[in-house]
Amino acid sequence: MAEFSTSVEDKGEVSTIYLKGFLDAHTAPTLENTFSGLVDNGKYSIVVNFKDLSYISSAGLGVFMAFIEKVRENEGDIKLSVMSDKVFNIFDLLGFPLLYEIFKTEEEAVNKFRENKNLGS
């Protein structure tokens, strides 16, 4: 059985969601709940770490689209990081790199939020 799980870690003002396993139409609601939990608590600076994600289908990609608007309206962002080539290729096929910042490491993604905040203050 394919499993999927998420965990969240707060690092200062930035929350990182760690994805693990197989993200498809069956498991996408788990990720929706994770995003809802953050957004409902006013956490809009979100990094997603894909390191342990083995698989994604369009149902999983749809979750990122479902939350990005709300997050950006609140001056936050969803930044993606540590994708395998296989997962990146699917995002790339659908044109996601035009709409989302994708970083090689989680640190780079987290630092991007900090830089933006320093510039803004």
């Binding site: 369009s58 149902a59 689209m65 608007e69 096929l93 659908l94 044109g95 996601f96 709409l99």
Partner: peptide, 25 residues
Amino acid sequence: THPDLQKYFNEKRVGGLGMYLMKAL
């Protein structure tokens, strides 16, 4: 056709992505 992601994103329409992927893959 190739999905206009920005449009999908504004209209929160995701269903067509799967059909596009099938064709591309």
